[in-house]
Write a protein that binds this DNA or RNA. Structure first.
Lengths: 238, 238
DNA sequence: CTCATATCTTGACGCTGTTAAGTTTGTGGC
DNA sequence: GCCACAAACTTAACAGCGTCAAGATATGAG
């Protein structure tokens, strides 16, 4: 069933409601934000009744979970592509994935907000979990590579919880992620609004990120490379 | 009016509904998150009818705006207190405010989520704006101080928008903020859940933050101090 | 005491997510 | 080709939501 997508609006069956709902949801999220997001509104845009989506996604959380999974896949694919491009052009791989992360957030703010929003997803969903771990695995691999560790392509899915409990690189990994994620979310959510009031202000902030923040990040990681193992905070007696 | 707060539940007038609503709201936010937040639920906990809050806050957004303002004040006070303590004990001031930021987020996740959530606040509210700029001003001051710049106690409220358009320290400021904010939000929102599965896992993450991430942050800023002005990302030809 | 005013309640509106039951459509077995 | 079945969708209904208008009640100033 549903092989022919040309059923279209006129007929009783939509034809590809699943995809249409996802697109509608992302459109609503992108233009109205999390607050204005409504399942009924999405159904309206897709041209179906409010109860129609239930068959495909169960409920609202199910729809969001599917979108979040796509969001993780976006991140994974963009980061992998960025790494490939960095290898080709001789650029820094870690810098490449940091920029790719922000680029994804800006390109599809709807998806990104769902992934890292506070809407509540179906966290036990297996597809979501795999997609998340895949994306995170890329970050781990590239950070370790930047640290000079040899990475053996371990499957994170088989790692015991808690992840990286005794990994000496955990600090570096979370540092990279914090900077990248922090800047991306603040930019997406408008917390940096006061800095981008003039025309093309957002572009200038992205440039600042690419040219300076990522540079600071790399410098910090490189410093860790020189002195492997935990780096003590010199201002604490711990 | 409302001088005697002992009116209590029995009487027609609550006595201090404004405060009661704020507390109820934060309790709901802390235990149910943004998704389960409801004005009616808050009114229920405060023991009043659903329409009662309207007189004090206008509407739901008004309540959230007040809470967000308190959240900014929390941040400001905690950071100032941390600076004072750092001065007293000889610790690093910038490290102190980074740790204070996370501490506030963990201590009052309800407020913190409202401040930086995606719920939509009354952004033109003057109190909110002032509180936000005050908190941000502390971050700016301490970052500039760490960079060795002399800070003349400028009032950010009078700065023209966009803020810091040509400030050479903007990158450092946003870097510090990104790390601190990124880690705090990820921890609060459970994105770091896989790392804290065992008992007292959150404490270990906080320790990692204090002892290593903040250390990396300081190292990056110090490096900037040595080489003032914009720091080029060495892996880009910009 | 009187009465304006601030505070809270009641009742209603349209909206939401979700469910149950019924209707239409496509598909595989014959 | 036909038919039964399953999938996809609709309609109708439910409780709960935010908000508003109108009415009730308490407070404090005169």
């Amino acid at each position: 069933m549903a092989k022919d997508k040309t059923l279209g609006r006129g007929s009783y069956h939509h034809g590809d409601l699943r995809q249409a709902m996802i697109e509608a949801a992302e459109a609503v999220l992108a233009e109205k934000g999390v607050g204005g997001f409504t399942l009924r509104e999405c159904a309206r845009r897709a041209g179906v009744s409010p109860a129609a989506p239930a068959h495909h996604f169960g409920n609202l959380v199910g729809l969001l979970t599917v979108i979040a999974t796509l969001g993780f896949d976006d991140l994974s694919e963009a980061m992998e592509a960025a790494v490939a491009e960095a290898i080709r052009s001789g650029g820094d791989r870690l810098a490449a994935i940091c920029e790719a992360y922000l680029a994804v957030a800006l390109a599809r703010p709807g998806r990104f907000r769902v992934v890292f929003g506070r809407l509540g997803l179906k966290n036990e969903d297996e597809n979501l979990r795999r997609a998340g771990i895949r994306a995170f695995g890329i970050l781990v691999r590239e950070t370790k590579l930047a640290l000079g560790r040899q990475t053996e392509g371990e499957d994170l899915l088989t790692r015991p919880l808690p992840l990286f409990a005794d990994d000496p690189d955990l600090a570096a990994i979370l540092f990279v992620w914090s900077v990248t994620h922090g800047f991306s979310t603040m930019l997406i959510d408008g917390q940096l609004g006061p800095f981008e009031m003039q025309p093309s202000g957002r572009e200038r902030l992205c440039e600042l990120y690419s040219k300076q923040l990522v540079g600071l990040l790399l410098a910090a990681v490189r410093q860790m490379t020189a002195r492997p193992g935990p780096l003590a905070n010199p201002c604490r007696h711990g």
